[in-house]
Amino acid sequence: MSSNDPVKPSRLDPEPLPRRDFLGKASLWAAAATGVFATLGIARLPKAAVLSSPSRKFKVTLPENLPEGQAFVPPGRSVALFRDKEGVHAVSIVCTHLGCIVKPNATGFECPCHGSRFAADGAVTKGPAPAPLPWRKVTVDGSDCMVDEDASVPPGTKA
């Protein structure tokens, strides 16, 4: 058999990939990969690396004559401050249900949006709130109080 004879392809040989097939497949894979990466990029964009919310740590001076059991809500803040013989404590006034601002009343707090009621220590007594109002960290420095709305402390912690 001379070397010029064409080799008959066997039935078992893999079929050669025609150029057009290769181009088609390559563009299909390129499209799929682009789709995946573009989706990932788009999905990443709306979640900002830095949030624009203001600092939630602040200094406040309680009124001299704040009666025991009476809440003091610093303007623009979402905690209620109380002072008694054991010290000062801060209870969050953001409802744990759907984020409305609860109102201090004689027995604790009430939420205007869906009727949750809380005891003075923040425990849920009625309504749909799934969790008690958290207590926030307070440090007393002379007549000033430092309140950190981002730091929670176990209920009953007073400063």
Binding site: H97, H114, P128
Partner: peptide, 20 residues
């Protein structure tokens, strides 16, 4: 107080008032 959604969401708000 009360904070009400538009009418077509008030049915949902009623349910939400039991469990968010």
């Amino acid at each position: 107080n009360p904070a009400k959604a538009p009418w077509y969401f008030l049915g949902l708000q009623e349910l939400v008032a039991y469990s968010a």
